[in-house]
Design a binder for these strands. Structure first.
Length: 257
DNA sequence: ATGGTTGTTGGACAA
């Protein structure tokens, strides 16, 4: 089973790119982030025509997550538990063929020193708590998405340029490690421990893409039962080079049946 | 130091 995650940076602006990629890559499941539209505006019919059923959790203008699947979507949970007042659409979780799968869009957190960074750390702490609860079932769990965290220096082309940024602060990286230390694997890095230039995001500005000035911030975190089934994890750079590209590119996880 | 880009939206804000 092929599961992909892609921050599409507006599903309506990106629909041609996403449909073309689905037709070519044929993932069983696509996790999307930053759909940037309300739930009702999600182009579900376009996905249905391509054979995918969808579940979207949208929000006007910002954020928003969705899941598309060739197989039936069950047991939907909208929103990250732990703060009833949080109205930002950043988490949707489903079960597909017995696998618990979540599409995650963690807060960016910039500028540091504002309530935005506090919200980011609080959100990641909530994710940790929920991720711990999910482990208790001892079933395959796949938490995929844009974590807005650069885990290690190997994951950034120009570390000095990111010093002090909300994506790379020691406290941010520690918040991701807190989740990994529960028993989750950052499966791309686990499979490719020394691979450099394995980026998933290149800024629109400053010629970041042609210079390969990227960062790895889109991750698949897997429970031990999911790790048992891993056949591979790759980054498909091609979509970032297309016309009207998202600033992120897909990460693909392959699980054995 | 500044401005460089894209999307949503119709002036900033977010990334």
């Amino acid at each position: 089973m092929k599961i992909a995650t892609w921050n599409v940076n507006s599903i309506r602006a990106r629909l041609p790119n996403v449909m073309a990629w689905l037709a070519e890559a044929k993932p069983d499941i696509l996790l999307m982030q930053e759909i940037k539209c309300e739930t009702d505006a999600f182009p579900a019919m376009d996905f249905k025509a391509a054979g995918y059923e969808t579940h979207a959790l949208g929000q006007k203008s910002y954020n928003g997550v969705a899941i598309a699947s060739l197989h039936p979507i069950e047991a939907v949970h909208e929103g990250l538990p732990g703060d009833a007042k949080d109205e930002q659409a950043r988490y949707v979780e489903v079960t597909i063929k017995g696998v618990r799968v979540a599409s995650i869009y963690a807060p960016n957190g910039n500028p540091v020193g504002t309530e935005k960074y506090d919200y980011k750390l609080a959100w990641l702490a909530r994710l940790k708590k929920h991720a711990a609860a999910l482990l208790r079932d001892e079933k395959p769990v796949v938490l995929g998405g844009d974590y807005n965290v650069i885990p290690e220096p190997i994951d950034v082309h120009d570390p000095a340029a990111w010093e002090g940024d909300a994506l790379y602060l020691p406290q941010t990286r520690a918040a991701l490690r807190d989740i990994l230390n529960l028993g989750y694997a950052d499966i791309f890095r686990a499979l490719h421990p020394h691979r450099k230039n394995a980026y998933t995001f290149w800024d629109y500005q400053g010629g970041a893409w042609p210079r390969d000035n990227g960062i790895r911030i889109d991750h698949f975190l897997l429970s031990p039962e999911a790790v048992d089934r891993v056949a591979g994890c790759t980054i498909d750079r091609a979509p970032r080079g297309e016309d009207k590209a998202s600033d992120h590119t897909p990460v693909i996880l392959e699980l054995r049946a």
